[in-house]
């Protein structure tokens, strides 16, 4: 399952996508992110399973454009810590 967390507003579309098939719930991204965007929980989209997956926290979902800003300089963007930390390649950003 691809879970898209974020929003679209007048200024653009800001989504962090998590591929829950790939995500192992290891929590490496949680540690890598300096701003606490992620947390590991029981898969909220599949209530009948007990799988652990990473999600974007409720509080961050409506402001990731700003929270993720410091990791996204306009020029010479380094690899994003969350994506670099994920060995399964489960995380992607739309912007």
């Amino acid at each position: 399952m691809i879970a898209n967390y974020g929003y679209k507003d007048g200024s653009g579309e800001y989504f962090i996508s998590v591929d829950t098939e790939k995500c192992t719930g290891c929590g490496d991204c949680v540690e890598a992110c300096l701003y606490g965007v992620f947390e590991v929980v029981e898969n909220p989209l599949d209530p009948l399973s007990d799988d652990q997956v990473v999600v974007v926290t409720e509080a961050e979902r409506k402001k990731i454009k700003y929270t993720c800003g410091p990791c996204k300089p306009v020029s010479d963007r380094p690899p994003l810590p969350c994506m670099a930390a994920c060995l399964e390649d489960a995380i992607s950003h739309s912007w």
């Binding site: 879970a3 898209n4 409506k62």
Partner: peptide
Amino acid sequence: GKVVSFLMNDKC
């Protein structure tokens, strides 16, 4: 009826 992918906009 299982979710394959989703996108939600509740900011606005």
